[in-house]
Amino acid sequence: MFNFHYRLERYSIRFAILVVIVASIGGFVEIAPLFTIDETVEPAPDMRVYTPLELAGRNIYIREGCYACHSQMIRSLRDEVERYGPYSLAAESQYDHPMLWGSKRTGPDLARVGGKYSDYWHVVHMNNPRDVVPESVMPSYRWLGRNELEPADFDLHLRAQQKVGVPYTDEMVANAINDLSGQANPDGKRAEGVLARYGEATNIRDFDGDPTKVTELDALIAYLQILGRLTEVAHQNPVMKKLEGPK
């Protein structure tokens, strides 16, 4: 009796193992090359990492689910390139943990929205999109301008980013909290540190027009304004792939 049971038990486990093997070989064969894919990612020597304020803004973008309506991936199709700019390259999202390519365009693509509008436009738009685009179906995000940013543990964020492979220096990690507020205070002492660590081209300003505090809106706009601007590679090689689509 025991023997009989034993055999049956082995049988169902064997079956389970078979399912795992069959299913995972397919996945593995397809995915394995992608773990060496960084070898095929175009070099982008001018690429910089997100500043702490921009990273905080990115986290707000994630928290509010902006990705549910906005893609950040311009496909290599003619109409997309004409509408949104040069198509997205793999290099441009190499520091994005996780990527925010999106799968639905209820709103327009944002991969290259950085610099397209003024900060002020964004402030008005985020507070009530219908003030600038009367037909818009985008939600109003009034609470972002009310909420102060909580920077207390931002060094931990940069440390974790470092662990997953983003090239933040130890100095950047150590100064994360100061840099966070420094970037939104152009007149403050901390601003210089941000420029020194993240490059002269970094946007240093009071993004949300309220100099008294650093809000979530400051962070979000800092992030929006850098989208598509971390590297210039996409602009330097305008046509590498043949574009497809209607004429």
Partner: peptide, 9 residues
């Protein structure tokens, strides 16, 4: 933060 980034992710 996700272990993967960009295309891999």
């Amino acid at each position: 933060y996700s272990a993967f980034s960009g295309v891999q992710d």
